[in-house]
């Protein structure tokens, strides 16, 4: 058992009482999945007051000199919980905060990491995406959680257009900017020391994907990720897995079905509102939150594919 894991276990013992009040994040939720690599699995729920939008996976990686946060969380409150989890484990400074893509459940915790002015790392297209969406996200998150708990929009100041390596001191993280897939701002990371691929929202396990980018592009980027020999993979939603690339099979099946059945509906003249209730319906029993996301995924896919 590594020191980090032991400390996580201690935190776990005193977190039980916190569960009774349904706190958004308990310290025990942060688990060391590999040496110096800690993640908290998001809950498979919609954002709510009770969960403080802690619905995506968030975590950090500790090097000899500094720490990188990989997705700071879904709200300022969520980011503060992550910051506390880091402080409980290391005194090394957070030098990098990586925003894996534009969606609010992954990035609104960034405002918790102003101390020491870490680099805020994002896809080269992220500033433009935040310019058009950030304030809208912030306003609606603030309506749900209150402005203080939601936090402000934080804009990246280290942009990745292709690949980039972060040095945490004797530990290198390779970032890769993807073509439009889940969104048009997707970044993934690879930790060379532990062979861990952090796939962020290019990988969903168990929770139905949300689709906001390019369907064919996403399938193509999955092919590229599948070629990576990874000891373990961290999805954006769902459990950490060592079963790679097999763990992407469900996602690939869902996206392929979304693509082929939406195309078929368009070709057959099935109106968009009927397609939304029919396409990928065979997947319903296989995913959490299916009815919350699938109809909208179909609308997005239909609008995209009808112009093919």
């Amino acid at each position: 058992m590594s020191p980090l894991t032991r400390r996580a276990a201690l935190f776990g013992a005193c977190a039980c009482c916190a569960l009774a009040t349904r706190r958004a994040v308990a310290a025990s939720d942060f688990v060391e999945i590999a040496p110096g690599m800690v993640f908290r699995r998001g809950v498979d729920e919609q954002a709510s007051v009770a969960n403080a939008d802690a619905i995506a996976n968030t975590g950090f990686i500790v090097g000899a000199e500094s720490v990188a946060v990989i997705d700071p969380g879904g709200s300022l409150a969520d980011g503060q919980a992550l910051r506390a989890a880091i402080a409980a484990r290391t005194t090394r400074p957070v030098r990098f905060v990586v925003l894996s893509h534009v969606h609010p459940d992954h990035i609104f915790g960034a405002a918790a990491f102003t101390e020491g002015a870490p680099k805020i790392v994002g896809h080269a297209r992220l500033p433009a995406a935040l310019a058009t969406r950030g304030e809208y996200y912030r306003r609606h998150l603030a309506e749900l959680l209150g402005a203080e708990a939601a936090g402000p929009v934080v804009t990246p100041n280290l942009l990745v257009a292709d690949t980039h390596t972060l040095d945490l001191g004797d530990r290198r993280l390779t970032l890769r900017a993807h073509r439009p897939a889940h969104t048009d701002t997707d970044l993934t990371l690879f930790d060379e020391r532990t062979g861990t691929l952090i796939a962020a929202d290019l990988l969903f396990i168990g929770r139905v994907p949300s689709f906001d980018g390019d369907l064919k592009g996403w399938l193509a980027e999955l092919d590229a990720l599948a070629a990576i020999r990874a000891a373990r993979v961290v999805p954006g939603h769902g459990p950490v897995t060592t079963d790679w690339p097999a763990a992407a099979a469900d996602l690939r099946r869902y996206l392929s079905l979304l693509l082929t059945e939406t195309r078929a509906a368009i070709a057959a003249g099935v109106p968009i509102e009927q397609a939304a209730t029919r396409v990928a319906a065979s997947e319903r029993g296989r995913w959490a939150l299916f009815d919350d996301y699938n109809p909208r995924n179909v609308l997005t896919a239909y609008h995209q594919l009808e112009w093919e």
């Binding site: 969406r133 998150l141 309506e143 906001d212």
Partner: peptide
């Protein structure tokens, strides 16, 4: 709906 990520809200 927030661009693919959902937030439940009562405006």
């Amino acid at each position: 709906l927030l661009g693919g990520a959902l937030v439940a809200a009562r405006p």
